[in-house]
Nucleic acid binder design. Structure first.
Lengths: 214, 214
DNA sequence: GTCTATAGGTGGATAGAC
DNA sequence: GTCTATCCACCTATAGAC
């Protein structure tokens, strides 16, 4: 009755914890986001997890496999985050703010967006990773474009041009802001830019020239 | 009199052509912009120039030296391009358009902006390159902020917020648009985004809601 | 300035024992 | 699943001849 409960998050006895495969991906992801896919090696992961390189190859036969698994997991997690936003958020404005929040939380962990990082390394990536990377950006733009269109229809947004095109600007702007913020190790730089990007969408030319300017 | 003039750009006899050091930098720059600083080796340069790796080390003792030289030359060339714009352009709008044109010409060579690429690799760069990289972005922002401020004062621009902050958005937006365009090998993606960024600056909230919207 | 030759290290990857 | 041991290709860099 009075036995001390071990410090586990889960109530079930003998909580398994993340599998080795997941832990490998966790470390690889962190390294890829901070140093790039070409900026880390199996040796780096092995050291962090106190394993050998050979063990890693059991779970991911080649670095190309590891990279693909990384992208697929990242894409899925991002997709689930977007679904959560869709479920829990009311207006398009709130959705967009939470979308930007996803980027911000990445940066607060001193990381670059995995896909922005990989975009820079695009020419050196295995073919499958290249396709998965585009797939990620495509999905992002589709989701964003839908939010933008709804928001403009509802009168929350007032940007010009087709929503799809605007979605690309937003993705580009956020990725670029992260990129530069990385070079300054300064999250405020990113948040300041993100705020402006959101403001540009909200006001556009529809808001009359008035007190809110400047 | 009727001697065939050899195909050289220069009239002087025995035109020297670019020095070996310059040719090394040319190749290194192209490789760094397409594959990243960690994505190429001395062997790649040596092969392209039909030299040996050892010869390269004579000109640039270490890869850190090579990288620094690369950044310094790039920074200087960019600075000279900005000076040319200042000299030859009338209005702020034209200056801004030509500034975007600098980015576009890089992309048309199927390259990423050197400094955007290096920003992604920031964590893995030698310390001096990190400082030089920031110096590049700083200089960009200063130049841009001045153009933006003048343009707004002259009534050509109508963006909101401080020029310095807006300058950062523009740089971020252009770098991000290049980054994503690289992953799609599609320059139109960049130009479309660049057009929007320029439009956002011109119109802001100062232009009345009228026929030009949409 | 450019070469040959080589050092010393690290990269991804495999074979086979346990 | 994880290990030891090893392979081979490639990396940056240096020594010394020409």
């Amino acid at each position: 009755m009075s036995r001390v409960i071990p410090v586990k998050r889960n109530a079930s006895p003998a909580t398994p914890g993340p599998s080795t495969g997941q832990r490998i991906l966790d470390v690889a992801e962190q390294l890829a986001q901070t140093r790039g896919f070409n900026g880390f090696s199996y040796a780096d992961i092995a050291e962090e997890l106190a394993l050998t390189k050979a063990s890693l190859h059991y779970h991911f036969p080649s670095k190309a496999h590891l990279g693909s698994a990384l992208l697929q997991r990242y894409h899925q997690a991002f997709g689930e985050a977007l679904e959560a936003i869709d479920r829990e958020s009311g207006g398009a404005g709130e959705k967009l703010r939470r979308y930007v929040g996803l980027y911000d939380s990445v940066l607060q962990n001193n990381r670059m967006c995995l896909c922005g990082m990989l975009a820079a390394e695009f020419a050196t990536l295995p073919a499958q990773m290249q396709h998965e990377l585009r797939s990620f950006f495509d999905a992002n733009e589709i989701w964003l474009a839908a939010v933008l269109e709804k928001g403009r229809h509802a009168g929350e947004f007032a940007f010009r041009g087709p929503p799809k095109q605007r979605a690309r600007i937003v993705v580009s702007g956020l990725e670029g802001a992260m990129l530069v913020a990385c070079a300054y190790r300064d999250g405020r730089r990113f948040r300041s830019a993100a705020k402006q990007i959101l403001a540009d969408i909200r006001t556009g030319s529809a808001r009359a020239n008035g007190a809110t300017a400047e």
